[in-house]
Amino acid sequence: MATGVQQQSVAARGARRRRKVNWTPYLFILPHLILFIVFLGYPFFSGLYISLFQYDILRPAASRFVGLGNYANLFTPGTPQYQTFWNGLINTIEFVVYSVPPLVVIPLLLALLLNTRMRGVNLFRAIYFAPWALSGAVVALLWWWIFQSQGGLINYYLADLGMRPPRWLNTLPWAWVTIVVATVWWTLGFNMVIILAALQDIPDYLYEASAIDGATGIQAFFRITLPMLRPVMIFIITTSIIASFNLFIQPFIMTNGGPAQAGGGGGTESVMMRIYNEGFVRNLQGSAAAMSFVVASIMIAISYINFRVFGKRD
């Protein structure tokens, strides 16, 4: 500020130009900003708005303001929404717990293996990454066929070995096993590639120095590799949690949310399936929007905790 005043007295013309807002950076972010407003900003506020109504997009005249009624339904035992929503949410959290550790550990191990100078390393990288290019529906169908009980690949071979395999898709906890296996196979490539890139950024001299000091490979991994990977691992853990929270297509196709539970809802029905059902099958779009906001708040809270816990150790 002081320099600005000084310069103003020296050259008024230059100062006038300086006081003008520099639009260039805004122009650069404008395309993204427009997309953000159209596809995220506006839907966010519009969703918040309709979550206060009993709302069906095709029956605007029948819209009715219910205040926080849609939210209250989710927290009042005995409403049609209560049991199925919390069942779905708890299932989803269960899936996050089951899926995130393998989604972090397996890609890390693969990345370490593929960060060597062995022959055909690019081929292996491509092979592990390839499933990520498939659509979720294809992956789910593929694994459904492998796990199904009548002539499915796994049960066929297990029966050949004289074992009595479980009904993978229709009993717990096996249905979760199938969904976690399908998910890990499908998405580990993405995490692997990111970790691989980070591994290649760790300078060689750190390892050379540790070797001179007599560190073993395992010591080097825990004292150099992991700490250097920390920012990337936080990113991976956070994005994996968010991705797992959005579980939808795998149970939608593989188990259709089953096996059914006595009290209502399915054993593998995710909260996203419940929201889809509420909004597009039952056409209670206000209530579905309210569910989305409750889930989003939980996701934001978890992401925040995650950054606080892992991010603050320096």
Partner: peptide, 30 residues
Amino acid sequence: PLDEAISAVMSGSATDIQAALNDAASRADQ
């Protein structure tokens, strides 16, 4: 709710048929 109750009985996770159908009926009524 009826689909769920029947599936729960057929998969063995519900054993009391009358209770399962009653529960499904009360949820369907809502």
